[in-house]
Design a protein around this nucleic acid. Structure first.
Lengths: 142, 142
DNA sequence: CTAGGTGCAAATTTTTTGCACATGC
DNA sequence: GCATGTGCAAAAAATTTGCACCTAG
């Protein structure tokens, strides 16, 4: 019954590409990174395996930014900072989650819902984008 | 110089459709709602006007869920609850923002960035989806 | 042999855009 | 007349999917 987590070599490679970077990659990023090493790799396979990982729960979606969904293999609670110019996503150190059980209870009561998670995202300009100061150019769309 | 905020009748209608609902609509929702009243309305116009509103800052994106970007005309700080099954988005009453100036400072230091905003999203199952209990079916994709 | 995994290309879906026309001032 | 707004349809872009094949066990 194999490793129980990853199966084929490609699946393994796709997961480990996601897990071994801090950039919270998109499917295309994974494909672009792996394609040189694994010439016989197709984008569809990347998407299909990412779907498997999401279902399994071994990766999470960080959200869709600039038209691409971004993923994270780190499952411990943490928050993100997202640059609105280059869409770089960074982890916020310290592992603060910005909401405790009391807040979950509050939301459950107020919304009459069952809350299973939350996410806090800070946005602004990363250091690089502040320097190259694209002030007038505005945040690119797609 | 007209009203200075909204111009054409269609633009006005599009903005007010967004502003007068609590559902945090998508472009398509706006189109579907307005189309019967304004038969000569095209989806492209809805998208173009929404882009104008975002640039102007009179609406904000709540994020992309289930493949569609959702918008909010309420600009005061507040958090959202999102049902992972039906993608209904609700405001969380109380206007809590879950992050203060101290946190902004912390993130700015740690990430070496300039932070201009943040958003907190709780997710789970809304009351309706809990009842119709789709437990096994998992959260639909597109 | 069987099931799962994959390449490939076509299809879907959402959003953007080019162009010609309309409208208000 | 001019700038802005718009319909329409085509284009883009990201993602999903059908199908045939292939390979490990």
């Amino acid at each position: 019954m194999r490793t129980k987590r990853n199966f084929s070599a490609k699946r393994e490679a796709i997961y480990s590409a996601i897990a071994s970077t801090k950039c919270h990659p998109s499917a295309e990023w994974v494909y672009d990174v792996l394609k040189p090493q694994i010439p016989g790799l197709s984008l569809g396979t990347v998407y299909r395996n990412i779907a498997v990982f999401k279902d399994t729960g071994i990766i999470r979606s960080v959200g869709v930014y600039n038209g691409q969904e971004r993923f994270d293999a780190v499952l411990t609670p943490h928050s993100h900072f997202i640059c609105t110019s280059c869409f770089k996503i960074s982890d916020i150190p310290g592992g603060r989650s910005f909401a405790d059980k009391a807040m979950y209870d509050y939301v459950e009561q107020e919304c009459n819902a069952s809350v299973s998670g939350h996410s806090t995202v800070f946005y602004g300009l990363c250091s690089k984008c502040r320097q190259s100061d694209n002030s007038g150019i505005s945040t690119e769309k797609r």
